[in-house]
Amino acid sequence: MAIKTRRLRDIPLAFAMLGPSLLVLLTFVLYPLGKAVWLGQQTCDVQGKNCKSVGWGQYTNVIKSDQFQHALWVTVKFALITVPIGLALGVGLAVLADKQLRGMRFFRTIFSSTIATSVAVASLMWLFLLQPSIGVLANLGWLHDIFPVIKEPGLLKDSGTALWSVGISSIWANLGFTFILVTAGLQSVPKEMHESAYVDGAGGWMRFTNITLPLISPTLLFTTVVLTSRAFQAYGEMDLLTNGGPIPQDSTTTVTYLIYGSSSIIKNNDGLQAAVAVLLFVILLALSALQFRGFGKRVHYGS
């Protein structure tokens, strides 16, 4: 009885404290999600009005379409380029800088600095490096004598190098983030463990794989999840660097770019846009379930 009244007494306060958040989350996250799912089986006029249901088959048609499958493949490739390389570089840098040496603060600041660049800043910096006519690399004669693709057609315009180039700019922009995370992870590894392993005769590489890596595995998992979801949602890079091109290969048209990109043929088609966006949501959902379920168990969380 007493418990019952207490449960009820807190209701007004709980309502006041949760209400604002709940209102915002319902209005701007859950309502649009539901609406998008519904819109995904509709077709609308150019203003997004007068929507008519055309059947849930629209989702199947989108899944079957060349454009969606291609965009999904590009997105997966983009993740496969940026996540492992970005993670490896971040770990490498963090290990390199994980020593109490004079001047290490200076190097750490440099290594973390790219976190200050937003996607627009980073992409424009790389655009000026890679643009084939006025870009920096294109105007270094000796360099494009060795790698003609820099000049003709340009790293961002060659269907073989475009995605890699965007990927490198993205890895660069995320490097500061990865570096900071892994450094923090490394600092939580107790030094004594290394020392005792050393006494046991373990070499540098063994110490790294047998002690350091397992202990920073929660950090690595978290970083992987964040980098993967960033890769799956990358948009600004493509918008500024390649416009999803080069055409007709659409080498950098990711799923997000297919939805919003200026050269996408569905960008003024609300129904198809919503369908693709919902499918992206489902993919991300499956991916995070996979990452946590399948691999989370193997992650060492300490005692």
Binding site: K64, S65, D66, Q67, I266
Partner: peptide, 13 residues
């Protein structure tokens, strides 16, 4: 599924 374009998806009926 074979080859199809997303622009065909809009008018399934």
């Amino acid at each position: 599924g074979g080859s199809s374009s997303i622009v065909d998806s809009g008018n399934t009926e």
